[in-house]
């Protein structure tokens, strides 16, 4: 397939995944701001979110203070920076439109109608609509897009580039969510339980749809170590780093070409590390350091995929 088509499919999927994760994080922050707690910790939540997405500067250039209303407006509908839900979805739709021939009609129409609906929702929400409902809607549209992709697309290169984009983006996003929350909760290493911590942890698990999964897997109280294990190493947990890398490895193998051996090797190494890794070792070497290293390696993988497949090295 055309390199430029693969590139657009890859980014279409990444932006859709990014929009979903953003909605998940916003949802958690929004819910937490409803719990009885001081403005201090509410602000802490928004600060963390701005830090996670490297957007503190952008935000401060627009607003002097952090309030839930302003932060929501900034993250949800502000099209003047590239990281809002609105901007991500615009990018999804523009990329999809440019390669609509490589998508099934049902996939394209799902994406296009999401975009059209998003624009009407924006108008309603500005007039004081249901914010929580909006985040739900973003999540469900994301589920719908993936469902249509999975159940209508031919298992060809277009399919594999789309899913490679999805999983690399999700790996990055889950790592960031974990890092920021972890950082915030445990400034000095291991912490102890308490009501406030319980809500923080359950919020974190909820943001990656893992609260019930945690209960099912561990049948025990929530501890930081287990949360980290679930979201890093459990390959059967669909938003964990282990699962995302395993899937990325699979899709990369399906599209291999004569440039891509080294990239494949690197994903394979990362996959093996996650597969055989132990949470004790990760904690010993420092969770934050581990996650930073992981995010860096996923970034490099994205760059390598781009070099191997998307930007043709052939010149006229």
């Amino acid at each position: 397939m055309l390199s430029s088509t693969a590139d657009k499919l890859f980014w279409m999927a990444r932006y859709a995944e990014r929009a979903e994760n953003l909605a998940r994080m916003l949802d958690v922050n929004y819910r937490m701001s409803l719990f009885p707690q001081g403005p201090q910790s509410v602000n802490q939540g928004w600060n963390a979110l701005l830090a996670i997405s490297d957007l503190m500067g952008e935000y401060q250039s627009r607003y002097a203070e952090i309030t839930p209303e302003k932060a929501l407006a900034f993250f949800a509908f502000d099209g003047s920076h590239p990281s809002s839900i609105m901007s991500c979805w615009r990018a999804v739709r523009e990329n999809a439109r440019a390669v609509r021939g490589a998508l099934t009609a049902e996939t394209w129409e799902t994406i296009n109608s999401t975009w059209l609906e998003l624009r009407t929702i924006e108008a309603n929400l500005t007039a004081g609509g249901d914010v929580g409902g909006f985040f739900e809607w973003v999540k469900y549209r994301s589920h719908l897009v993936r469902g249509v992709l999975r159940s209508t697309m031919l298992r060809d290169e277009a399919f594999h580039f789309t899913w490679l984009g999805t999983y690399l983006e999700r790996a990055d996003n889950t790592a960031r969510i974990l890092d920021v929350k972890y950082h915030m909760l445990l400034p000095g290493g291991e912490g102890v339980g308490g009501a406030a911590d319980y809500y923080q942890w359950s919020a974190l698990l909820n943001s990656v749809a893992a609260f019930e999964i945690y209960r099912k897997v561990y049948r025990d109280v929530i501890t930081p170590r287990r949360v980290a294990e679930l979201l890093i190493l459990r390959e059967d947990m669909p938003r964990s780093l282990g699962h995302c890398i395993r899937q990325s490895y699979f899709h990369l193998q399906q599209i291999r070409n004569h440039h891509s051996a080294e990239t494949e090797r690197r994903v394979g190494v990362l996959d093996a590390e996650l597969h055989f890794g132990r949470i004790e070792d990760i904690f010993e070497s420092g969770l934050h350091e581990y996650l930073m290293n992981f995010i860096e390696r996923v970034y490099e993988l994205g760059e390598r995929v781009s070099k191997d497949f998307l930007v043709s090295s052939e010149v006229a």
Binding site: M1, L2, A6, G101, F161, N257, F309, S312
Partner: peptide, 22 residues
């Protein structure tokens, strides 16, 4: 394939498109 100009190039008077497999 739907191509844009940047997807094509000419070498030795033959026209090629840039694909993921060369």
């Amino acid at each position: 394939e739907l191509v844009e100009g940047a997807d094509l190039f000419v070498r030795d008077n033959y026209v090629y498109m840039r694909t993921t497999r060369g």
